[in-house]
């Protein structure tokens, strides 16, 4: 018979590994199931400056990897496996993966989110051929070139700033007339002389000759179209929750986020949702790790009550 874990965590980002750290330290048997490698979205972040304790900031991948190592130090395990199907009802949860079955008393869903696409034809074919979702990864290939950044939130503006130090010119295309990004970014953006902002506009077409050659943008008020020639396009228009696995099992909101409060409790007893996949106001590393600690505590209490 399979080993029955106290806690199986699906997803190896900050929320998942913090749940693992707290769970392992509380004496629970814990395994994290991760499809690729520790990290999740922060692995795409060049520098994390808003996670306290790192005076000069830290690169996202190292931060994630450290969280994994710290959880391992207390006995949590990691299995590189892709979860295919979940059976969450009842006292014993069954997690089917491409590397076999895992059985557990509790399950923490820490699957996070992935970048949102523009939703344009050719988008998939052009990905990596001038169309990018990770400025920290691919920005270096645009030294001295002209690039477009699409979006107006923190990630988009951070991307524009990273790129402004590499590219000749950066054009930020945003569908509103103000940026959603936090104030700290506004000043840096004004100082960056090679950044131009195109307001009230959305991308209507990707122009290409096999590689991106430019975009067409449409003014959201007037409908007027204009062409912007560029060498590359970096998309940063928010994210979508990775909740497909639990659709039909757990209650989701219209956006696809798992409905759970600050206590991380979902619609099924013994199942918790942490980090970006959960309904919440502030999606940050610091709130994901907080969720992880709370979920672990909830799991501990649930197990104690059930083992009585």
């Amino acid at each position: 018979m399979e080993k029955i874990y106290d806690m199986v965590i699906v997803g190896g980002g900050p929320g998942g590994y913090t749940a693992a750290l707290y769970g392992a330290r509380a004496g629970l048997s814990v395994v994290v199931l991760e499809r690729m490698a520790a990290g999740g979205q922060i692995a795409m972040t060049h520098q994390v400056d808003n996670y306290p304790g790192f005076v000069d900031g830290i690169d996202g991948f190292t931060l994630a990897e450290n969280m994994q190592k710290q959880a391992h130090r207390f006995g949590a395990g990691t299995k590189y496996a892709e979860v295919q199907k979940l059976e969450l009802e009842g006292d014993v949860k069954r997690i089917h993966t491409d590397s076999g079955l895992f059985v557990s008393k509790t399950v923490v869903i820490a699957t996070g989110a992935s970048p949102r696409y523009l939703g344009l034809p050719n988008e998939q074919e052009l990905t990596g051929l001038g169309l990018h979702y990770c400025a920290a990864c691919d920005g270096m290939f645009y030294r001295g070139k002209t690039v477009v950044v699409v979006g107006g939130g923190n990630s988009a503006v951070a991307d524009a700033l990273v790129l402004s130090r590499i590219a000749k010119k950066v054009i930020l295309v945003h569908r509103r007339d103000t940026l959603r990004a936090t104030k700290v970014y506004h000043e840096s953006l004004q100082k960056a002389e090679n950044v131009e902002i195109v307001w009230n506009s959305k991308v209507s077409q990707l122009m290409h000759d096999g590689r991106v050659t430019g975009i067409k943008v449409e003014n959201v008020h007037t409908g007027a179209e204009q062409e912007i020639l560029c060498d590359g396009v970096f998309v940063s228009v928010g994210r979508q929750p990775a909740s497909k696995l639990v659709a039909g099992l757990l209650a989701l909101d219209e956006g696809g986020y798992i409905i759970a409060g600050e206590d991380t409790v979902t619609s099924i007893p013994g199942v918790y949702a942490v980090g970006d996949v959960r309904t919440k106001q502030v999606r940050q590393v610091v709130t994901a790790v907080s969720d992880g600690a709370i979920a672990s505590h909830q799991a501990e209490e649930y197990i104690a009550a059930h083992d009585e």
């Binding site: 690729m36 990290g39 692995a43 690169d59 991948f61 990864c137 270096m140």
Partner: peptide, 14 residues
Amino acid sequence: WAPWCGPCRMVGPL
């Protein structure tokens, strides 16, 4: 790959 690229460091061990 490159050492400064997070996803590269994810794929490297695989």
